[in-house]
Design a protein around this nucleic acid. Structure first.
Lengths: 324, 324
DNA sequence: TTGTATGCGTTATCAT
DNA sequence: ATGATAACGCATACAA
């Protein structure tokens, strides 16, 4: 590998001057500047980031800890993170980890020294468990329950979104509200939604609507209902959460609680970068992104949505944040 | 940050001995060993990876360059990569890059010194353009056209898979084979599949089947056909490619060419690790993963597939590779 | 079995 | 404007 010494020798200059040119960190004559840039370019010199971070104690890399997450949510959130990270000159070190406390701690340890901060996504984990993280590096919790911890966090307004959907469902005639006997567990996969729907259908006193915790499970539920010959939404309404791009292409198109997934990732990285830059400023930051109800035919709403779906806008749009 | 010096001081030993214990790289008395481990653990010492890679010239990190890729393919391939990387003690540095030559080169440069090798996924890119990569580090091309280059590569047997699907389609009565006037372009999104299907429906002399280049577009096409009142598969058959988990939950369930996505990522990392370990051994490796035809109702096959879909097996299974 | 000393590639501090 | 050199944290060859 070609080092800064090689460049210095070739340009007949000292390493100090080469470093100054490449980092614009001191006065260098125009001519010397030109020369060194030319030589460095010709020799394809790239600084060794390890050596650099050794002395600057910055890696320009952000760690991302993800749970075992499937489907489009995963890719969208990473897209948002990578966009923002790259725009700020940072790389992304991505790792999956078991979403329990031990898994997270181990993973953070492994990233130690490689990253300047970590975004931890762990929907199941109560932030309290992470209180004494083995890290002095900034952390942002994404989609966790942040109560009781002093860690920066970014969460989705799940409750509010869910409440809006429930309000919609009751407004179109569904009556039975909170009832644990009508709840079934699932792991966010289509298969789980499929199985859960079958269980609910088997009940003596069936519900009239299914509200899945994410779109993948809602899609699985739709499939189960179809195979059982149940009409949606007439005999059973179905609603999802997240509003992944796929949702509007279902039959019937799926009502869902829209989450700005990509922007969620982007914002998490922004918060982390802020935490890295203002390491001393210990004002804890908690933000919540708001959701938006999207009613389609699967809940009986908007039967008129027959027009061709427009091309999805994959660009990022501004979203509102709530400080809590 | 606590360094090896801090540990040495606390344990009243030399840094050399601490290093020997932590790397098992020399003879140390059991007692000293115990002591040092205890102290290191208590102080939560983690070696600075930058300093280490400076001297070992290994980063234990793999770069992954991805195109702007949507949906489940993305997340599955990363899952496979991360699994295998972690199992071998490596991290994943993931970055999205424009899939043109300049974008790839820039991205690889940026990773220089941070990674021991790179997996480049760039379906559009002919490998010839990458011949003079600015890198001495090992590279594995994933899903590119590898002809004419000396770079290790892993590709899907797209042609064979597509041929099998076409054979199936003709076997159930579809007649018009290769005809450019029946081809429409798409960017692999549901919206593109939706739009493409509408265009095909508008033709005077309609086709009787649509074979989309991936499942997302096939799902978009299904939606378009549904809204136009076309019966699938009776009036129009639809087939996809990839067989993402979602495919079997469509209405009708989507016939597709199954690709072992997760294993694809895993194998790419294995190839890269091999390239890193055997850096001198310049035997170029080219492998192709085979696909498997999955016929469901959208092409008129298997009308009996009414049984509940079993839980998806998300574990990795052995796949066959072909050396070319 | 343990300690001392050197160097990895870079930036930063101090001279010149 | 430029150069010499210390320091970053670690592994390792060599000495004890």
């Amino acid at each position: 590998m070609v080092t800064i010494k090689d460049v210095a020798r070739e340009a007949k200059m000292s390493v100090a001057t080469v470093s100054r040119v490449l980092n614009a960190s001191g006065p260098v004559s125009d001519e010397t500047q030109r020369l060194i840039r030319e030589v460095a370019g010709r020799m394809r010199y790239v600084p060794h980031s390890g050596a650099r971070s050794l002395i600057t104690s910055r890696t320009e890399t952000l760690g991302v800890l993800l749970p075992d997450l499937y489907g489009e949510f995963f890719s969208e959130v990473i897209r948002g993170m990578d966009d923002t990270a790259q725009r700020n000159g940072f790389h992304l070190l991505i790792s999956r980890a078991y979403a329990d406390r031990h898994g997270i701690e181990t993973a953070i340890r492994a990233m130690r020294g490689r990253v300047d901060g970590v975004v931890v996504m762990s929907p199941d984990l109560d932030a309290k468990s992470l209180l004494n993280l083995p890290s002095t590096i900034p952390v942002v919790l994404l989609c966790s329950v942040p109560r009781g911890s002093g860690i920066d966090s970014l969460t989705i307004q799940n409750c509010r979104g869910a409440r809006e959907m429930v309000t919609h469902l009751t407004s179109v005639g569904h009556k039975r509200t909170p009832d644990p006997s009508l709840e079934r567990e699932g792991d966010f996969t289509e298969a789980a939604g499929y199985a859960g729907a079958l269980k609910l259908l088997a009940l003596k006193n069936r519900p009239t609507a299914i509200f899945a915790a994410n779109d993948s499970m809602a899609i699985g539920a739709l499939s189960a209902l179809r195979q059982c010959g149940m009409a949606v939404p007439e005999e059973m309404a179905v609603a999802g959460f997240d509003d992944i791009p796929m949702a509007r292409y279902m039959d019937p198109p799926l009502s869902s609680v829209h989450v700005p997934i990509c922007e969620l990732g982007a914002r998490a990285v922004e918060l982390l970068l802020h935490g890295i830059t203002h390491k001393n400023d210990h004002a804890r930051r908690r933000e919540r992104v708001s959701t938006k109800l999207v009613i389609r035919r699967s809940t009986g709403g908007e039967p008129a949505e027959r027009s061709p779906p427009q091309t999805l806008n994959r660009e990022m749009v501004p979203i509102r944040y709530t400080q809590v």
